[in-house]
């Protein structure tokens, strides 16, 4: 159990948590996901959170209400999630839906249709090319949103006009 009001420490702990979950993904043999988690979660997110911290304050203000209701909600959600894992297939089980549904199809088709050793890339860029195009558009939209909200382009332009 750890409690802190220092937001800097919280951001650092979030980065550590992200790195640990990357290790968890490596253990689950999902190296591509682990790679993304380490680069985005532990790397860029931490830097952006620090950037946000620099815009606000370093310490959280004391809460105005008791933590009973949030704690209750978290406990109930946690219990529901644990209950949900009870009838999940065992880790690495050959009869799990993840192993029997579309995965064997991709594995058997990739060598002669795409012929790249990394099947994840084949699925991501070729079989699911539409999805990845959508993801790229989402990432681009994020940049547009941040630019519109934060860049202050209009403010700068107005200032330049005043200077002239």
């Amino acid at each position: 159990m750890l409690r802190t009001r220092s937001l800097f420490a919280t951001v650092m702990l979030a980065g550590v948590f992200s790195l640990l979950s990357a290790l968890l993904f490596v253990t689950l043999d999902a190296v591509d996901v682990a790679f993304t988690e380490a680069a985005v979660g532990a790397g860029i997110s931490t830097v952006l959170m620090l950037g946000t911290l620099a815009l606000t304050r370093r310490f959280e203000s004391p809460p105005a209400h008791t933590p009973v209701i949030p704690l209750f909600v978290v406990l109930v959600t946690g219990a529901a999630l644990v209950y949900g894992t009870l009838d999940m297939p065992y880790f690495g089980s050959a009869t799990a839906p993840a192993q029997t549904h579309v995965a064997p199809d991709y594995i058997s088709r990739t060598p002669h249709e795409i012929d790249v050793p990394n099947i994840v890339t084949a699925i991501l860029a070729s079989y699911r090319g539409y999805d990845t195009l959508g993801e790229t558009a989402v990432v681009f939209t994020a940049a547009v949103g941040v630019l519109l909200l934060l860049s202050g382009l209009r403010r700068r332009r107005r200032k330049e006009e005043e200077d002239v």
């Binding site: 952006l48 950037g51 946000t52 990432v139 940049a143 941040v146 630019l147 934060l150 860049s151």
Partner: peptide
């Protein structure tokens, strides 16, 4: 996008 977001945050500080 990543550099854009970084610029947007840090250029305000």
């Amino acid at each position: 996008v990543m550099i854009t977001i970084y610029y947007a945050f840090t250029s305000r500080t």
